[in-house]
Simulated scan of single mutants.
Amino acid sequence: MTTVRVALGDRSYDVVIEAGLLARAGALLKPLSRGRTMVIVADANVTAHLATLQAALSAEGIASEAIVLPSGEATKSWAQLAALTDRLIELGIERGDHVIALGGGVIGDLVGFACSILKRGCGFVQVPTTLLAQVDSSVGGKTAINTPAGKNLVGAFHQPALVLIDPDVLDTLPARDLRAGYAEVVKYGLIDDPNFFAWCEANAAALLAGDPAAREHAIATSVAAKARIVGEDERETTGRRALLNLGHTFGHALEAEAGFSDRLLHGEGVAAGMALACGYSAAQGIAPAADADRVVAHLRDVGLPHDLNSAGIDADGETLVAHMLHDKKMDAGTLPFLLTRGIGQTYLDRTVDLGLIRTFLDAQRN
């Protein structure tokens, strides 16, 4: 068992990582149950994992109630938020209770946001079942829903009380979703850990093929990196946490152009976005072209989008920049970008000329 502490004062919590953990989760959840029925909100795709979790709770004498929601990005909506909060109120959730989010990032984001506003804030636990959620969205307390204008535009910072990660649940994850989650693993190497990026280059095939040691190492390293950054800058006030958005400004624009649909999964958008951020940095003479080429080659080798074409996007620069202008990170009319001086040297640039971004994106279509 690996335990990573997210150090946030009185909001600190543990991320527990262990193969087979789901079947033993009851013992870890019992202190949070308060002798009451625990409510689990689950993705419709993880009913088998839901049964395992409910059995684990029952083994510790904990009753549970399940709410099963549709899978897919469309679930992060006003309609589903309203329906979920109404149902939680019907079930008698109290401020001292902890709702369990079982699923990928969509469920974690929606449940976390619902718990941030329900009765002015109740507790929740993250039990992520996708690689993307395990290494990124389940840790750090960012919760949100989407709106027609863009992704994650309505939300709140609301930290979970506990995160339980069982790498074995990835055995049931479709290969495309596993690859999409892997993009967020690579991100930690590109931010500030070139040795981890080199490890990814050497071990990605084994990780994606299900090698337990590679999988657990990648998850533990990623969670530790995110916990460290979140502990330094919980609400993105210093710019340190913003480094975790590498690839996201470009990527969210691609997702918006794809209609936030299964045409382009979030991790796929991030992969293409990271390649574009590295490519733009190289085009501006900020980063070595060889490093940008190395990133593209690795993403291509593992089957992830690495440019506009492989992401299935044919929009021009003007259209994509228009999507970016809805980004929640807009500040005083400027849009910060995560650029790089090389692998492991990501930095925040608040002075990027959007005209240069338009020109760069137009050039990528040729």
Rank of each mutant, 00 (worst) to 15 (best):
259 G>I: 08
270 V>L: 05
241 R>Y: 12
350 R>H: 15
229 I>T: 07
300 R>H: 15
282 A>Y: 01
304 L>P: 04
236 E>K: 06
218 A>V: 06
267 G>N: 11
259 G>R: 15
341 R>Q: 10
262 D>N: 10
353 D>H: 14
323 H>N: 15
285 G>H: 09
235 R>S: 07
359 T>G: 11
321 V>K: 09
283 A>Y: 12
240 R>W: 12
244 L>M: 07
276 L>Y: 04
280 Y>P: 00
222 S>N: 09
276 L>G: 04
353 D>A: 14
237 T>D: 11
296 V>S: 07
353 D>Y: 05
292 A>F: 01
238 T>K: 11
353 D>T: 12
322 A>W: 05
348 L>P: 05
250 F>V: 01
280 Y>T: 06
299 L>N: 03
261 S>K: 14
322 A>R: 12
234 E>I: 05
301 D>F: 08
337 F>N: 00
218 A>W: 02
272 A>I: 09
246 L>A: 13
263 R>T: 13
347 Y>G: 07
282 A>K: 01
267 G>D: 04
328 K>D: 10
307 D>I: 07
346 T>L: 10
338 L>C: 07
225 A>V: 06
351 T>C: 13
313 I>K: 03
346 T>N: 08
309 N>F: 14
296 V>H: 12
240 R>K: 14
255 E>C: 12
289 A>C: 14
270 V>K: 00
263 R>M: 15
346 T>W: 02
313 I>Q: 02
317 G>A: 05
327 D>N: 06
310 S>G: 11
237 T>Q: 08
336 P>A: 11
282 A>C: 14
318 E>D: 09
251 G>R: 00
307 D>C: 13
230 V>M: 02
344 G>D: 04
248 H>V: 01
307 D>F: 12
333 G>V: 08
222 S>A: 14
278 C>D: 04
343 I>C: 00
286 I>W: 03
291 D>N: 09
238 T>W: 06
356 L>T: 11
224 A>E: 10
230 V>G: 12
254 L>V: 09
320 L>R: 10
357 I>N: 01
317 G>F: 03
272 A>T: 03
234 E>G: 02
265 L>E: 04
327 D>K: 06
335 L>P: 00
286 I>M: 13
277 A>E: 00
219 I>K: 00
273 G>C: 07
288 P>L: 08
340 T>D: 03
331 D>S: 12
312 G>T: 10
293 D>H: 15
284 Q>H: 14
359 T>Y: 05
333 G>R: 10
342 G>L: 03
319 T>F: 07
306 H>K: 04
234 E>K: 03
249 T>G: 06
289 A>E: 11
298 H>M: 11
233 D>W: 09
260 F>I: 11
238 T>D: 11
332 A>M: 15
229 I>H: 02
256 A>F: 07
232 E>Y: 05
358 R>G: 07
225 A>M: 06
269 G>Y: 00
330 M>I: 10
257 E>A: 11
257 E>M: 09
285 G>D: 13
269 G>D: 01
231 G>H: 05
227 A>W: 02
270 V>Y: 01
344 G>C: 08
279 G>D: 01
333 G>Q: 10
269 G>T: 01
350 R>F: 06
287 A>V: 06
237 T>R: 15
350 R>N: 13
230 V>Y: 02
255 E>S: 03
344 G>T: 03
